[in-house]
């Protein structure tokens, strides 16, 4: 399941999340959203450390973060 969930319709392609991700798993995709922005995308969900940095800098509240835990 997704650890990094990016709402593509909210994303404005600002690149801030990409610049702060310590494990460099975020990139700008080559798709266009309804507003004409190329949304950010996560290339490797498994590598996400759940550090929270991307969500902290996102000005558009586009990113939600999850992590698996043993129930």
């Amino acid at each position: 399941m997704e650890r990094v969930s990016i709402d593509e319709q909210r994303c404005k392609s600002c690149g801030l999340c990409i610049s702060v991700c310590p494990v460099k798993i975020l990139i700008i995709s080559d798709r266009l959203n309804a507003r004409g922005f190329r949304p950010a995308q996560c290339t490797d969900q498994d590598k996400c450390t759940s550090c929270g940095s991307c969500a902290l800098v996102c000005p558009d509240v586009a990113i939600e973060l999850y992590r698996e835990v043993k129930a």
Binding site: K12, P59, V61, E68, V69
Partner: peptide, 27 residues
């Protein structure tokens, strides 16, 4: 396995796309 929330959109946030320019820290 269950998913634990690390970060979720706040409840008092009205779920609209803002008019701010990309990357503007008003957001």
């Amino acid at each position: 396995e269950q998913m634990k929330v690390i970060y979720e959109r706040p409840k008092s946030w009205a779920n609209k796309v803002t008019h701010y320019c990309p990357g503007c820290t008003h957001g």
